[in-house]
C-alpha cells in the first residue's frame, strides 16, 4: 500500500493533482446543492404567498 501511495517518488504530484480534482468536483456539487435548497425554500414561500392572496 505504501509504495502505491509513493507513486515511485512522485506521490506529491500525482495525489496533488487528483486530490484537487476531487475537491473541485465535490465543491461544485455541494455548491449546487446549497443553491438548490435555498431556491426551493424561496420559491415555496413565494408560492404560499401567491396561494394565500386571491389572485
Amino acid at each position: 500500500m505504501m509504495e502505491f501511495l509513493a507513486m515511485g517518488g512522485h506521490g506529491l504530484f500525482v495525489w496533488g493533482s487528483y486530490g484537487v480534482t476531487l475537491l473541485v468536483l465535490l465543491g461544485e456539487m455541494i455548491w449546487l446543492r446549497r443553491r438548490r435548497l435555498a431556491l426551493r425554500r424561496q420559491l415555496a414561500r413565494l408560492a404560499r404567498l401567491q396561494g394565500d392572496s386571491p389572485s
Binding site: 426551493r40 420559491l43 415555496a44 413565494l46 408560492a47 404560499r48 401567491q50 396561494g51 389572485s55
Partner: peptide
C-alpha cells in the same frame, strides 16, 4: 421563471 405557473406547480405551491 419563478413567477410562472409551471414553476409554482413544481415547487409544491398551493397555487
Amino acid at each position: 421563471e419563478r413567477r410562472t405557473k409551471w414553476v409554482l406547480e413544481r415547487m409544491g405551491g398551493k397555487a
